[in-house]
Every structure is written in structure tokens, then in C-alpha cells.
Design a protein around this nucleic acid. Structure first.
Length: 106
DNA sequence: GGCTTGACTAATG
DNA sequence: TCATTAGCCAAGC
């Protein structure tokens, strides 16, 4: 039977799973790569989450995904910060997102 | 079929 | 709080 169990969330459609979760993040909120990976079933795929977002569709709010420290580690961190600020997300003096305040919890 | 890279995380000092 | 180390997984060559 070619039907894989739900347990195996990671598969050939891994990229689609990542973008699907990121689309659930509401404006003004952010999530970490680890959170997205955890929703997919494994918190150890944080790197793959970033890799998947690198090739995500233009309608995916990739800018709402930051690392566990609230830092913007995307290739377009500058633009990412502008987008987040436009949604009401606040940053500290170190340029990190206030996860305590804007972290999205499903 | 195997090795390297990468938008990371958690643990330790 | 910061720096360093080890681990994990998927895609590309």
C-alpha cells in the first residue's frame, strides 16, 4: 500500500508541509523554525524548514519565521524586519524579535 | 549510492 | 548572557 501513515509527516511533500504551517501564522505573530518543525513531527528539522522557505511560494509569510533567539537569519533579514515591523512586531535593542510577546502558539 | 551543504536547536562551560 | 560543540534531516551533485 503506497499510503504512508500520518506518523511519517516528513516525506517527499516536506516542502509543502512547511509552507502549509507557515501560512497558519497570523499577522503580528512569529514562530521559530523549531516550532514549525515540531508541528511537522520533529523539532530536529529546523534547518530543513529554512531550506524549504528558501523555495517557498510568494504567498507564504516566510518573514514570520525566526530562529529560537528571535533573530532574523534569512537572506533578506533587512526586508524581513520591515515586514514584521509593519505588522506591529516589536524588536529589542539587539534587533531581535520579542518572542515573549509575539510568539505564535497553536 | 554516498558525501556535502544549510534561513537550526539544545546542551555545556 | 555569550561562545563552542554535537546532532539531526532533506535536497543537490
Amino acid at each position: 500500500m503506497p499510503s504512508p501513515p500520518e506518523a511519517r509527516v516528513i516525506g517527499p511533500g516536506f516542502h509543502g508541509r512547511v509552507t502549509d504551517v507557515v501560512r497558519l501564522v497570523p499577522p503580528g505573530s512569529v514562530v521559530t523554525y523549531g516550532d514549525v518543525g515540531r508541528l511537522l513531527g520533529s523539532a530536529h528539522i529546523a534547518r530543513q524548514v529554512g531550506w524549504a522557505l528558501a523555495a517557498c511560494a510568494p504567498d507564504v509569510p516566510w518573514h514570520r519565521v525566526v530562529n529560537a533567539r528571535g533573530e532574523l537569519t534569512s537572506p533578506s533579514a533587512s526586508e524581513q524586519r520591515v515586514r514584521l515591523a509593519a505588522e506591529g512586531v516589536e524588536f529589542d535593542d539587539q534587533g531581535r524579535v520579542l518572542l515573549r510577546r509575539h510568539r505564535w502558539q497553536p
